[in-house]
Design a protein around this nucleic acid. Structure first.
Lengths: 207, 207
DNA sequence: AAAGTCGGCAAACGGTTGTTTACTGAATGA
DNA sequence: TCATTCAGTAAACAACCGTTTGCCGACTTT
């Protein structure tokens, strides 16, 4: 191969991907503060110095992983909000979708749960920012539903935050429990969502 | 001083405490995987080798910190459950108590939030076990309330888990926000609790 | 007062780490 | 074709790390 522009860039992207994947793999069982540049490059099949051709820092790499993690999460939430049906069906599908997502992308979910309150400020802030955009999206979706008629903007927002928070907790619980406890976690999550939905239905009755 | 039994033990306990405090201090800004034995002993004023007279491991020390963290949390929850009043007053006091607790023991709370999904299995499991005992206690308290008449054991339990989960999330939010955003976090938390309480009140209507 | 216990220390062990340096060789553009 | 760019490398740097060893000296028991 020669004189075909783009070969170089493609190879570089491949190395970059290898670094990201290696890091993500290591982060499934360790903290970000616990993995090192050398460890990542070893796993990725690069020399230690090669790392610095792509990232200044491990935390810079981690921020990229945050964005990737939530890109797939955003796709998920869009699917949930777009669906229609009675609230029980919606709850069932939401919980099932979370379970699917955790099953398909366990490393990403684990990474987010771990570093959400982790020791690296930049990563923590990146995750917090993305979760807020997330809540914005949920709030918009909720606001468009007929069930939110008469609700203040602030109340819709706080409901959205409650849902997001519950979703994150449920995902973390799925991870911790493994395939064995999956149905138990799902049942609890569904019941809790039904309780919240009940509260939502009677919110204006007794404000 | 000599021939007074217990001097040795007291001195040993003092060193042990110094190690625990040093570690807790370091863990406020770093992950458990990020702090080292040498770092802790340096901060505590001991030699590296001295560490092993007290703990086999840093994770062993961390498990002790977990127990300490939740001892004070248990005291808190007992106070909340013992109080009486209408539900809004109870909610206000609960949220205020969480805020106080975070203000008084930020290092412990941060440590728990950080290591709950952290990279060290033993610590994760210790935290999970304590949180479950916590949920047991809340469930017992809720079950004793008149509002839980007609509720199944499982439903009381899932409500308790929802409360605990919300409490943890609120505490973490207080930490992240600092004194500035405190009132905003508190307001959101109170509203969310009122929504859950509304759901609780109408739970049996439409089961 | 003598013997024993044991918390703490200095030192050394082999190993790891992050980062920089000067370099090589293939992809590139003229 | 020839000069340039640049992703990746090997090697060296100093600074750490966790853990073990042998020892000391204050406490404790007899």
């Amino acid at each position: 191969m020669s004189h075909t522009p783009g070969v170089r860039q493609a190879q570089k992207q491949q190395s970059r991907r290898a670094l990201l994947d290696a890091a993500l793999g290591l982060l499934e069982h360790q903290n970000l503060s616990g993995v090192g540049v050398r460890e990542v490059t070893r796993e990725a099949g690069l020399s230690p110095a090669g790392f610095y051709r792509h990232f200044r820092d491990l935390s810079e790499l981690a921020v990229v992983l945050v964005e990737e993690s939530l890109a797939s999460l955003h796709g998920m939430i869009r699917r949930v909000l777009a669906e229609s049906g009675d609230s029980d069906q919606l709850i069932d599908r939401s919980v099932e979708l979370i379970a699917d997502h955790v099953r398909e992308h366990p490393a990403y979910v684990r990474f987010l749960a771990r570093e959400r309150h982790g020791g690296v400020r930049a990563v923590r802030e990146a995750i917090a920012a993305e979760f807020e955009r997330f809540a914005d999206e949920v709030a918009a979706g909720l606001g468009a539903q007929p069930a939110s008629e008469g609700w203040s903007r602030a109340d819709v927002r706080m409901l959205a935050e409650l849902y997001v928070e519950h979703m994150v907790a449920t995902a973390a619980a799925f991870l911790e429990a493994g395939p064995a406890g999956e149905t138990r976690i799902a049942r609890t999550a569904r019941t809790q969502l039904r309780l919240i939905t009940t509260g939502r239905r009677h919110w204006l009755d007794e404000g």
